[in-house]
Amino acid sequence: MSTTANKDIVRRFYEEVFNQRNVNAIDELVHSEFTNHDPTPVASRDPESMKQFIHTITQAFPDHHHAIEDLIAEGDKVVMRCTLTATHQGRFPGFLEMPPTGKSICQRQIHILRVQDSKVAEHWVIRDDLTMMQQLGLIPQPEMAV
């Protein structure tokens, strides 16, 4: 596949599955042998658990949205830089085991996805979880020197 086609698959994956919460698109866009290298305990490990993950994240952050900033592709890999915005409205079992704070987050993320057979087959991510925890009030933010 071309790098343009691979970028289109990744764009559709985030727009349809995450932003539109269309879990049925997972069957079309995620490879049956999907591997997720995200170390978060609640991260999806296969297409079926991804459907549950979308449900779980939507309960915790009903307005979550990945704004894609950049898509860069080479070979079968696509790198996406994005910003996740959301409001903490519910529990996130296995990750944020706390009552909803009602606070908003703005988290920078970089994802690397490998495309195989026109589907997302592998995923790595780097996120700014520290800033997210500070925004939710779980970790104090450092005081700014004046």
Rank of each mutant, 00 (worst) to 15 (best):
S32P: 10
E33M: 09
N36R: 04
N36H: 06
D38N: 15
T40F: 02
V42D: 13
A43L: 06
R45C: 07
S49N: 03
M50I: 08
K51F: 00
F53V: 00
F53T: 00
I54D: 01
I57C: 07
T58N: 07
H66C: 11
D70R: 12
I72C: 10
I72H: 03
A73W: 02
D76K: 04
K77P: 04
R81I: 07
T83F: 00
H88S: 02
Q89W: 02
G90K: 04
R91D: 10
P93I: 13
P93R: 13
G94A: 07
E97N: 15
P100M: 03
P100A: 15
P100E: 12
T101F: 02
T101M: 03
G102Y: 09
G102N: 04
K103L: 13
S104C: 11
S104T: 09
S104Q: 15
R108P: 00
Q109T: 14
Q116R: 14
V120R: 09
A121V: 01
H123S: 10
H123K: 12
W124R: 04
I126P: 00
D129P: 07
T131N: 14
T131R: 12
M132L: 14
M132W: 01
Q135F: 01
L136M: 12
G137W: 09
L138Q: 03
I139D: 08
I139K: 02
P140L: 12
P142F: 01
P142Q: 06
